[in-house]
Design a protein around this nucleic acid. Structure first.
Lengths: 335, 335
DNA sequence: TGTACGTTTGAGAGCGCTCTCAGCATTCTG
DNA sequence: CAGAATGCTGAGAGCGCTCTCAAACGTACA
């Protein structure tokens, strides 16, 4: 069984270099190529990635960094959806995907990632305004694509959505259906999405001449925290709540129901993400569809494109969002 | 900046071999070790993993294979929990984790995994009775630990639970509270867990002298399918349903409520897994706690132990399960 | 026929590390 | 005190691949 290029070379009567050319698509005469391919066909030869990497500096392996706390990973299928999109693209075009989760501190994780030196590039979720892991990756010479981005990531490649605009849109929808005492359970403050969605909420409220501060309460993107803080919002007698994501909305709904109130009659409810949970709630949730799977796909494509053509400058993709209106805000709808 | 072992060797006035010994814990005099470590401290030297791998055949990278369809990955936090447990252990003791999902066929995935040749070993979920991916990994020379196992995996290392016993236990619980027309929505048939839980259900029913076939209906571990098939079970006028997992129970609950029936008064309901969703349902779900996170931890530990000491024979771990009784079967309970 | 050029191929020098082997110094044993 | 055992170190041979360089062989043109 042929194990190395030299074995193949001997079997097909050419040099190692020529076999390498056949495998990697270098210039080889048709006849030689055919002969070598025939030999390869007959063996189960697999190139040794370590050797290739050592010689060429490339591995075909891409890193995916999602430095999130376990509870968030569980609670919110956002990351799973993202991962799925990324892996769809990588499975086709890269030879492997290394996953880095939030098991260790960001500093340690950064150190490991750079220390491995086995990846051609990384995709990293940039949730936080202040994030040494993202900073470190951008500062390194490892090609990096961000999912989400901070205003400071001027020269980075990223895939993102317009959080401010989308939050404005959904808040405006609540205003349009006649609500005036509209609460907002924020995402984790300090996170890009959390802060930006708050900005969008404020913008819409102010434009409508409504109080933009009184009904804001801090959440952290998780359902349990929403269950807790939603009660405080109800004490303020709100007639609508815009939640920073669907998991938060699911928690708020729980609290609203427990208080004996009706959605949407007493309190209209809206989320953000449009993950499967949104359509499974009772009533189904009005939310912002942000195409998480698409974000995964786009970020992986951007990274691969960056690797193929490093000279092409940073890749920047801003994906569209869509307001999905369901019965949690407009009760009469079917579906 | 020191980039290679030779750089370090020159800087500290010893040979490359000695520096390598310091880094890898070989026999070196205290003084030399101290001097070399001092030099290393001053640089940000990182060993080149590709070179190390090429020379030693080891990489410190471990593969995790979860060949599941995307909907399942979303629906069921089982896999996320598993991944979390695995990564907790690997983050400490291995240098990286490659993830392989179900983006391609099992044959192709197998080919890629073996082709990469970059992993010291793999952990693979062995869901299916018939699984070419698992067969291929076991037949290869890549050290492999299964999560779940088939009866045919006689010589393999695995981490598993007693599905039959646990299903018997939960079914017996339904019998104990006085139910006689107990339905079962199976997991995906063809899967080890699905089949074994059915066996456990049958065993308990037969022992109690109840009809073990009439109320069995096929599901596939997903919530949507459960919503659909639960209706058929209700037509048979069941007074309890044992669902093959929590996601299935969540779907069944939806259907039972939609039919205007009360849980547990009219229909008692039980699941399997004890994922977060179980305690979030209304009423909270009686289920089998199987410690998914622990399974992840155990499987990773088993693999690392296998890598450290290949002579030690296969590692086999059978984890305990626990019946968790909540209001979906015993209405009067608090909590 | 001679020169120039393009195409195809092979030789060989690494890539950065591990690991064996041998050499030397030192200590222990009888 | 000879000889054996032990501890530490350096030299050097790979691991399997890529990639540059130059050779060899046409072919085209003057």
């Amino acid at each position: 069984m042929a194990r190395t290029l030299d074995d193949l070379a001997e079997l097909s009567g050419v040099s190692r270099a020529t076999v390498s050319r056949v495998i990697n698509g270098g210039p080889v005469s048709e006849e030689t190529r055919r002969r070598v391919l025939e030999v390869i066909e007959g063996t189960n030869y697999r190139p040794n990635l370590a050797a290739r990497s050592l010689a060429s500096g490339r591995t075909g392996v891409v890193g995916v960094v999602m430095h999130v706390e376990p509870p968030v990973l569980f609670e919110d299928s956002y990351f799973v959806a993202l991962l799925h999109g990324v892996s769809d693209v990588l499975a086709d075009r890269a030879s492997g995907m290394m996953l880095w989760l939030g098991n260790r501190s960001k500093e340690e994780t950064l150190d490991r990632i750079l220390g491995t030196g086995l990846m051609d590039g990384v995709i990293v979720t940039a949730d936080n305004l202040d994030d040494p892991l993202v900073d470190g990756l951008l500062a390194s010479d490892l090609p990096t694509v961000l999912i989400g981005h901070r205003r400071s990531d001027l020269t980075a490649s990223y895939v993102d959505i317009d959080n401010i605009g989308a939050a404005d849109t959904v808040t405006t929808h609540l205003i349009d259906i006649g609500r005036t005492r509209i609460g907002h359970i924020t995402g984790r403050l300090g996170s890009v999405a959390g802060e930006d969605r708050l900005v969008g909420y404020r913008r819409a409220m102010k434009r409508a001449g409504l109080d933009a501060d009184r009904f804001v309460i801090e959440g952290d993107f998780t359902r349990p925290s929403a269950i807790e803080v939603a009660a405080k919002l109800l004490e303020l007698d709100v007639d609508a709540i815009f939640c920073a994501n669907d998991a938060t909305a699911s928690g708020a709904l729980e609290t609203i129901k427990a208080a004996g109130l009706d959605v949407p009659k007493d309190v209209a409810l809206a989320g953000f993400d449009d993950l499967p949970v949104a359509s499974e709630l009772h009533p189904p949730l009005t939310t912002i569809r942000q195409g998480v799977h698409a974000q995964g796909i786009e970020s992986a494509s951007a990274l691969l494109s960056l690797l193929e053509n490093p000279e092409g400058g940073p890749r920047r993709v801003l994906l569209p969002t869509e307001l999905v209106i369901r019965q949690s805000t407009v009760g009469g709808l079917s579906g």
